[in-house]
Amino acid sequence: MNPEEWLSSRTYHHSNFNNIEELVRKKKEKNLKISLCLPTLNEEKTIGKVIVILKSELMDRYPLLDEIAVIDSGSEDETMKVASSFGVDVYLASDHLQAHGDHRGKGENLWKALYLLTGDIIVYVDSDITNIHPRFVYGLVGPLIEDPDIHYVKGFYDRPLAFSQGVRPTGGGRVTEILTRPLFSLFYPALTPILQPLSGEYAGRREILEKIAFPVGYGVETSMLIDIHNEMGMEAFAQTDLDKRVHRNQETTALGRMSFGILRTLIKRLQRDKKIELVDELNTIMRQFSVVDSAYKTIEHEIFEYERPPMLEIPEYVEKFKSGKATS
């Protein structure tokens, strides 16, 4: 499947799957269990809304989701209290798989979700979306329920259903357009039709997610794409337009640190895939600058981008999911 073919045959719109009753029927017919993971860090303002809307529409009204879990990185605000008050499972990431150490970051939460949640399909949705809507979930699980050849679905945003002119740029975020897309074009061109590779909303089948490593920080979205592509090729992917997503905007300096983490993850894979050879170790310090009383001050951030091994290498996981014991 060449990139053009993939783009036309594997790009969906969430409205393709808005008959939720039908999705639930097919899910039951295929005996699938679906889990939603909401990774959080200080999201008290939005997590309650995300939970009540997704739980009421996709668990209480239509049983599309079998479980919803919040996995928290150690919020200092009321995130965990708010989440606990709405009847979903709430986990503090550092309380689980303690024998394997503790690394704080979104990727850590996503990785531990594979151990803590029991679904055949795991849906990941960021918790800072202010215009949360059930489409953010059914748009992602729809292709996985309907097509057994699809193993991983990525969300992208903001393509209106009707557009009057012929050409319209798809417009990823700043880091996507300046960093990820140029690098994918250089080294992993097959992945370039994925319109928003860094979007925080995606869903995958357990069989593939348990086989790949998870960077604990900023690089997790990039590594997932590269590693799943290496395992299964583009045929495993699909993408769904989830329309508009409203979330808080990050400052440019925060995007700089994000880019640093993504670069470390990506360069590691370039080395592994023998696309480049480094003569020295990569630095782990990101330097940024600020002005204090007319003097320039260096601010150093250590961004190591530690990687968790594939879950299949974790004995506790194998014990829980592969030893024939009950998984619910």
Partner: peptide, 14 residues
Amino acid sequence: LREQLLSNLVLFSQ
């Protein structure tokens, strides 16, 4: 019915 009620409230109000 709490979550359904709050979900309706949020969706209406937005």
